[in-house]
Design a protein around this nucleic acid. Sequence first.
DNA 1: CGATACGTTGATCCATTTCAAGATTGGTGG
DNA 2: CCACCAATCTTGAAATGGATCAACGTATCG
Lengths: 255, 255
Amino acid sequence: MVASEFPLTRLFLRGRLRHALTEDEKVLLESLIEGTRRVAAGEVIIRRGAVAQQSTLLLDGFIARVINDGASRHIVGFQVPGDYVDLHGFALKRLDHDVVAMGPVQIGYTSHARLERLMGEAPHLTRLLWFSTLLDAAIHREWILKLEELKADQRLAHVIIELWHRLNFVELADPHGFNMPMLQTDLADACGTTSVHINRVIRALRERGLLEIGRGRVTIPGMAELARYAAFSPDYLYGTGALQVVTELDANADA
Amino acid sequence: MVASEFPLTRLFLRGRLRHALTEDEKVLLESLIEGTRRVAAGEVIIRRGAVAQQSTLLLDGFIARVINDGASRHIVGFQVPGDYVDLHGFALKRLDHDVVAMGPVQIGYTSHARLERLMGEAPHLTRLLWFSTLLDAAIHREWILKLEELKADQRLAHVIIELWHRLNFVELADPHGFNMPMLQTDLADACGTTSVHINRVIRALRERGLLEIGRGRVTIPGMAELARYAAFSPDYLYGTGALQVVTELDANADA
DNA sequence: CGATACGTTGATCCATTTCAAGATTGGTGG
DNA sequence: CCACCAATCTTGAAATGGATCAACGTATCG
């Protein structure tokens, strides 16, 4: 472990607009984190409806946004290290969903009082915080699209590739996969299908040589093949360098 | 038509946090609108991937967020009067979806340069603008839930009740329905199903006496019955007075 | 009055759910 | 180190929601 310059916030907006942060802003951002905490797998970190006094930065591990509706459980989004998982709680005050640790997790937190002061003092950094909440919204829109458009096998592939890209931004993916604690049940809840069906879908994708999932590890033999299969295009993730992608999109739109 | 105090922005956050705006802020907000424009039905107001220089406030009519993926067309959200339809473009710069007029529409616009100045000068108003983009995200999450959880008939009912509530906030709904220009095709694209199937679903709901749709008009004989049918709970819309709802949720969570 | 967009209906096929049972795995105490 | 337990994963068979293809009805408007 190399001692990093900004040990807590170095992953925030990495691969996105981190380059838009000045050195002063990086210092300021790091100073926002008033404390850190370890959380056990499965723990509900923020409960739906509770009035939020602070916001949470995910430092290590995976988190899901979960809505429990009586019998059924649904996942409306995943968060990876470097994500502020409930920055929207700063303006919304109370969340419409639970925030749950998918495996063992480490988090940092920032009081809303501190964020309120920041808004008056650092408009540009504020705008980047705003941007980060809009990234979540863009991902939400893609999930809506995915659920409207794709079959279960493509949905799964889509979720997996999205996670790979997001982990790749923060240098937690390797060229052919990544580690993650999510179970088949979790993937089913995120794909809007049942664990029985997700199990068959996983097998089908394995047999096609597109994807392997098991024992906390995802292996993707051919990134391009899987992306094609899932009709995945990463522009909605607003990664650095995505402007080229958009140019391509424009070209296609004209055609 | 009564001459209103803030003719352009009087609907912004109405039924939500408009009461949190001071009189000065309301004046400032109104001054943001640098021009207005009428748009014909079906017109693409903002195209995916284009670099945005301004943001758009919907003054009158309905707008959809549309993603065209080759053959298929998908709607990832609707906007009603009083909504800033592309405020996220201020921070994201380019949108991941098209913004399309569902019927004849009137819009106002604000340059991003003006918004940038505002961020330094009016942090509290900025925070409310931020809030309004987070409302969209909350609605996105509910759509994800809806698509993961519900069958086509309940999805349709859910979309309709959501629109009723949002129109009710801005006083454009009446106790038993509202007017809207969306076609069966549009509703199908928003529910992730086909127009053939949405047609059957509309008939089934009509035969059950839950919902009538036709000729630009939605009629809801019994709001409570339809809400129960769609498993609809309006707390995610963050309407004024929703705190009671949340208290109920907490009570349920404990039970 | 004919064109065009929108809505309606029927028949067939397939993806997915549901229910039920069994296999595998990892962890824990004896 | 083994035996056992609980969680997770796997498989089968029957039932169903929804897609698809194809055709026909019906508004509406120049």
